[in-house]
Amino acid sequence: MLNFLEKNLPKIVLAPTTIVMVVCMYGFIVWTGLLSLTKSRMMPQWDFVGLDQYRRLFANPRWDVAVDNLFVFLILFIIIALVLGLFLAIFLDQKIRAEGAIRTIYLYPMAISFIVTGTAWKWILNPGLGIEKLMNDWGFVGFEFRWLVEQDMAIYTIVIAAVWQSSGFVMALFLAGLRGVDENLTKAAKIDGASTVQLYWHVVLPLMRPVFFSAIVILTHIAIKSFDLVQALTGGGPGYASDLPANFMYTFTFNRAQIGLGASSAMIMLFGVLAILIPYLYSELREKNHD
């Protein structure tokens, strides 16, 4: 008996997490999947109607906007945050004075919820109060910055705020990665006559691959959950021009009494994540196992 326990201890330790995961993640996904096949409105009801909700979803113009926005947001947000984070990390890695202070400044937005900074951002981006007014007050009379109130541009203000919040964290990840690079390697490259740019491009960056991996996983995670960001900054507006799928789902499920439709949008979101993430996770994790 004791032997059995001893032998299976690892499995026993993992068991609670596994059970919780099966119920509270995958169980709930299945629950939502089933719900998306019903005509539930105010509350879950189990009258199945097939793929009706999905048909409604795809016919909804607001959903189109939300999906387009997600692509714009996801791509821009991840690329800008990665590039900015990487460059700040490289610059900060040049034996900078007051590195600690600067690093903290870059990192702090991650510590604050958007419920908190939303109002400040709204002011800064508002043409009548923020940057535009400031520049005009300073004498740049023709200066215009009114993305927040323009239907085509509002989504980019979400990108700005999201990059602000997360790029410092990406910087920290890269900085940590750079500190882990073997100095002998860079010395050797320099002896071979590599310029700084060559050194970073050919030697250091390839070593950063696992950092890219972590950063992309975390940024995707943040992007898909960027719900409070939209809520606090634009409320989805002007009109519903800056809606993201998470906001769409929330509104239709809880405020519009269309739980079935909300569930179908949630499933599409999950499939989307699945389609992007699974191949990536698979290839990355697989390769590492071969190392």
Partner: peptide, 10 residues
């Protein structure tokens, strides 16, 4: 509401 707000802002 969606229709009205989308119309008014476009």
């Amino acid at each position: 509401t969606d229709t009205a707000t989308n119309f008014f802002n476009s």
